[in-house]
């Protein structure tokens, strides 16, 4: 008998229902009961920029920083942490990518390599 239902790859166990009587009715959590999402930025060492490391949930900023420390700096990955609530981040839309970023493509004169200079020239 073939019990196989769908294609399954490692880490993808399909969708069939499990047996047992464990399944319980659960009430969905309301949005206002959920902790907000925060984006975490880590400075890996003095002198470098803070860089986006990931995100996490926390009730407030202090907890976000404490959790970020536990999650993202357990192996000396950072010396400073910024957190910002994800809802405060404004981003470009992929639909606008063309109009925003393509104009830079044909402006090669903005790069130093555009200019052909004699090899004899020094310190430039």
């Amino acid at each position: 008998m073939k019990t196989f239902i769908g294609k399954q790859l490692y880490g993808d166990f399909g969708e069939q229902e499990p047996g047992g009587e464990i399944a319980k009715e659960k009430k969905a959590m309301h949005d206002e009961d959920a902790w907000p999402l925060w984006e975490v930025f880590i400075r890996s060492k003095q002198g470098l920029d803070h860089k986006h490391a990931g995100s996490l949930k926390a009730a407030d900023a202090q907890m976000a920083i404490e959790n970020a420390r536990d999650v993202y700096t357990r192996r000396q990955e950072g010396v400073s942490i910024w957190v910002v609530e994800s809802k405060h981040i404004h981003a470009t839309n992929p639909g606008e990518s063309e109009s925003l970023f393509e104009p830079a493509e044909d402006k090669i004169y903005r790069h130093p390599t555009f200019y052909d200079l004699p090899d004899e020239i020094k310190h430039m």
């Binding site: 399909g14 229902e17 319980k24």
Partner: peptide, 28 residues
Amino acid sequence: LYLYSAAETLGTSREQMIEDLLSGKAKY
């Protein structure tokens, strides 16, 4: 956590995923 965050970027909620795990609906 990293993985839940990655899944959330696709529009599913953490609460929903955890609920699915606890109810036995989701696999591991």
